[in-house]
Design a binder for these strands. Structure first.
Length: 426
DNA sequence: TCTGGGGTCCTAGGACCC
DNA sequence: TCTGGGGTCCTAGGACCC
């Protein structure tokens, strides 16, 4: 009797060129045309349509370096619009949950799903049905890879990306070695630049070769994560599906500046703003922070100016999410690490040691704390209704000369009535 | 001129203790 | 004068992911 009928089946659903697909949804004219989406500050290219990839535009390439190709080929360029992408991402995830409520939302454009309850025979068809439903309901094209482990489903997905059907299943294939042999080592999930260098030095150039390396060798020469990767390539699940959303452990807000910043006052405003955002974010998740880190740096690409980078951390006496306390701490750190004569390119704030607000030991809590909490809540509510920074702190400044550049925004806001696409009746 | 942002986990090494 | 060894905890830095 065969028991392979209901083997473990993990699907990885990945949206194709997600940010580009989002922009295309509201702008049919750019379908089948080369399109790229830029990172914050219009710095790097972070999403490319297939047509743009075919032109040789690379992922993560600085925009200014690709500008020639872009102009010559009439590539459509967009600044990133994260509220739009976030909204569409939630729609995609909601659609996926109809097939199995236990999904792991792995990133803004990816989710893992356990499909073990379907039989080996029907699994590829199930994949196609999921793909079609997401496309129909949200307009977002996806690729789906299905295999026994997460790492293998990543590989299946990699193959699916190049297929017309968009779905690849490795389930029920007796020997997958010929498939793994064609996967370059740097395309394996968990193998980055450093590990690629290391493996290649030891004659491991593809996924099959890694699969066949001994665990003890890998563990000794690398670490447990690497041996887990190898085990997963052998079809033994080592990385669990994380279907319950775990509380985050830290919260970072950092930005590059639209223009270099030299004055303490401007830098202070920027840091205060990041601090307000971070504090609001953790309040919305009912978390408090044990410590705060502030960092500043000049551009690492302009060595002739001399590179300066520094950071410092302060522990709070009592864990907090109060903006007044976090901003005060952040500014005092900044006074410490600010160095005159530098052209700052980036700064950021990190709230760490996050824990549940309710568990905060309140030996010292007082009526004053209660008042501040209420003040924070009403600030959040106002800002939620009327837009961020309707209510702010004086230290956050008003002019914001350091603000990001976004020269190519599509200005689509799915939460804003007036930016809905207009349809002209002819 | 112009080079993103936000996470997690692991490890090595230092401090400290008995 | 001689100056152990093992354990824990913390932190900074690095590697990885998208």
């Amino acid at each position: 009797m065969s028991s392979t009928q209901f083997t473990k089946k993990i699907a990885l659903i990945d949206c194709n060129s997600f940010y580009v697909s989002c922009e295309r949804l509201f702008n049919p004219k750019i379908r089948k045309k080369p399109v790229v989406v830029l990172s914050n500050n219009d710095g790097c290219i972070i999403s490319r349509s297939n047509e743009a990839k075919a032109l040789g535009i690379k992922m993560g390439e600085p925009y200014f370096k690709a500008k020639n190709i872009i102009i010559k080929n009439n590539v459509h360029v967009f600044s990133s619009n994260y509220s739009l992408y976030g909204d569409l991402s939630r729609r995609v995830m909601r659609t996926l949950k109809r097939f199995n409520s236990d999904i792991e939302v792995y990133s803004i454009d990816e989710a893992f799903m356990d499909l073990s309850n379907f039989s080996d025979k029907e699994i590829e068809e199930v994949g196609k049905e999921i793909r079609n439903t997401v496309l129909q309901w949200t307009g977002i094209p996806t690729s789906i890879g299905i295999a026994k482990t997460k790492t293998l489903s990543k590989i299946a997905n990699h193959i699916a990306k190049k297929k017309k059907s968009g779905v690849t299943s490795l389930i029920g294939i007796e020997n997958i070695d010929p498939i793994l042999e064609k996967i370059e080592i740097n395309d394996v999930w968990g193998v980055g630049r450093q590990l690629t260098k290391f493996y290649q030095k030891h004659g491991v150039y593809n996924a099959k070769q890694l699969k066949n390396k001994s665990n003890t060798w890998i563990k000794k020469c690398s670490n447990v994560l690497s041996s887990r990767t190898a085990m997963e390539l052998r079809g033994i699940p080592c990385i669990d599906l994380e279907t319950t959303q775990s509380k985050r452990k830290s919260c970072v807000v950092s930005r590059s500046f639209g223009k270099r910043v030299e004055h303490f006052q401007e830098l202070k405003e920027a840091v205060a703003n990041y601090c307000l955002n971070a504090s609001e974010k953790i309040r919305s998740e009912n978390l408090v922070a044990k410590a705060i880190t502030v960092f500043v740096r000049t551009s690492p690409f302009q060595r002739n100016f001399g590179y300066y980078s520094n950071s410092k951390t302060i522990d709070f006496p009592i864990a907090t999410n109060n903006s007044i306390e976090t901003v005060t701490a952040a500014v005092s750190i900044l006074e410490d690490i600010f160095r005159h004569g530098c052209r700052y390119q980036k700064a950021g704030v990190m709230l760490t040691g996050l824990s549940n607000e309710n568990n905060k030991e309140n030996l010292f809590s007082s009526e004053k704390d209660e008042k501040i909490n209420r003040l924070m809540r009403s600030m959040d509510n106002t800002n939620y209704r009327y837009g961020r920074s309707t209510l702010s702190l004086a230290s956050a400044g008003v002019y914001k000369k350091w603000n990001m550049r976004r020269d190519h925004s599509s200005k689509i806001d799915t939460a804003d009535f007036y930016s809905l696409p207009r349809i002209k009746a002819t």
